[in-house]
């Protein structure tokens, strides 16, 4: 399991109901069930990953964040997790709304487009930046809605979400040391990780 997945797992109370959107190979689901006693289910878009997860005894269904969340009832889960996918969904704001409708908490991670390397590359070369994190050319990237950490915070404010916890991590999932300052995190953090709830929720 990636280190940032471990950080996500640490945000989740034991014995709770969890929906992992984009559960991939099911590593987080497996960890949450075995070590935290959670009732964890997954949604995954890649059918091979779904089959592999179910063959490992993990409850995963084929589906995606844009089309399948609307079918769940309100507060069906304690936590709804979206890992490294927000930038690739069709309607990020709607996906967040759905996550906080069906879950009491949302855990969201996304690659930070405000990272200094991206800013520098765009400034100096005048072309779409390519880095280890943003590594597909503009014409075939699935990342159609990139945002920065500050952008994401603005959206949370507009939508009335409470940020219970946040951190910036590097690509390998190691916690970056700029946790206290949002502005520094926005400059130096490669991946951002947020734990949200609805105001009054």
């Amino acid at each position: 399991m990636r280190l940032d997945q471990r950080l996500i797992a640490e945000m989740i109370q034991p014995g709770t109901r969890v929906l992992d959107i984009g559960s991939g190979d099911g590593a987080l689901l497996d960890y949450l069930f075995r070590t935290r006693g959670c009732d964890a289910q997954g949604i995954e878009i890649d059918m091979q990953e779904v089959t592999r997860s179910v063959a490992h005894g993990l409850p995963v269904m084929h589906g995606d964040a844009d089309h399948d969340l609307a079918h769940y009832p309100q507060h069906a889960f304690d936590y709804v997790v979206l890992q490294r996918t927000l930038q690739a969904v069709e309607r990020p704001r709607e996906v967040l709304r759905q996550m906080l409708r069906i879950g009491r908490h949302a855990i969201v991670s996304f690659p930070n487009f405000g990272h200094w390397q991206l800013r520098l590359k765009l400034l100096t070369s005048g072309r779409m930046p390519m880095t280890a994190v943003w590594n597909t050319p503009w014409y075939e990237t699935p990342n159609i809605h990139p945002c920065t950490i500050l952008d994401f915070l603005m959206l949370c404010r507009e939508e009335g979400y409470v940020v219970e916890e946040w951190m910036a991590v590097d690509e390998d999932g190691e916690r970056a040391p700029w946790r206290r300052s949002i502005r520094l995190a926005n400059l130096f953090g490669e991946q951002a990780l947020f734990l949200l709830r609805r105001r009054g929720g």
Partner: peptide, 17 residues
């Protein structure tokens, strides 16, 4: 599968190629 989602049931759903 979606009906079971609406019932908040524990569902796996696989389409085999």
């Amino acid at each position: 599968a979606r009906a079971l989602n609406r019932a908040a049931a524990n569902v796996s759903f696989v389409e085999i190629e």
